[in-house]
C-alpha cells in the first residue's frame, strides 16, 4: 500500500480547494459561486478527516468535518436566499451586475 497515506489525501484536498477557488473566481453565475464555496469546504473536509485518521487528532477531526457539513448546509440555505433576493433586485443572477458598492 505504499503511497496511500496522509499526503495523498492532502493532495486531493488541495485540488478540491483550488478548484473551488477558481470556480468562485470565474463563475459569473451566483449559483456557480456557491458551488465553488462548496468545493472549498469539501477540500477542507477531506483534510480534516485525513488528519483524523493519520494523526492523534482522532475523533475530533471527524467532528469538525461534521460541523463543517452542517454549516455548509446552513450557508447554502442563506446563500440561496441571498441569491433569490439578488435576482429579485437585479433581474439577473450575474454577480458582476451587483457592483453598487464599488468605490
Amino acid at each position: 500500500m505504499a503511497g496511500v497515506d496522509l499526503t495523498a489525501y492532502l493532495l486531493v484536498g488541495a485540488v478540491l480547494f483550488v478548484c473551488g477557488i477558481v470556480c468562485m473566481a470565474t463563475k459569473r453565475n451566483g449559483i456557480g459561486v456557491l458551488m465553488g464555496v462548496e468545493l472549498v469546504l469539501n477540500g477542507a473536509n477531506v483534510n480534516f478527516v485525513a488528519f483524523s485518521r493519520y494523526t492523534s487528532l482522532g475523533l475530533d477531526g471527524q467532528m469538525m468535518s461534521l460541523f463543517v457539513i452542517v454549516l455548509a448546509a446552513a450557508e447554502a440555505a442563506i446563500a440561496l436566499a441571498i441569491a433569490l433576493n439578488f435576482y429579485n433586485n437585479h433581474q439577473t443572477i450575474d454577480v458582476d451586475r451587483g457592483s453598487e458598492l464599488q468605490g
Partner: peptide, 23 residues
C-alpha cells in the same frame, strides 16, 4: 470515517445540491 461519509452523501449530495438546483 463511515459516519462522515454517510453524512456527506445525505446532506451534501442529497440536500445542499438539491437546494442549489432549486436556486
Amino acid at each position: 470515517a463511515d459516519f462522515v461519509g454517510a453524512t456527506q452523501l445525505l446532506i451534501y449530495v442529497g440536500g445542499t445540491i438539491v437546494l442549489l438546483i432549486f436556486g
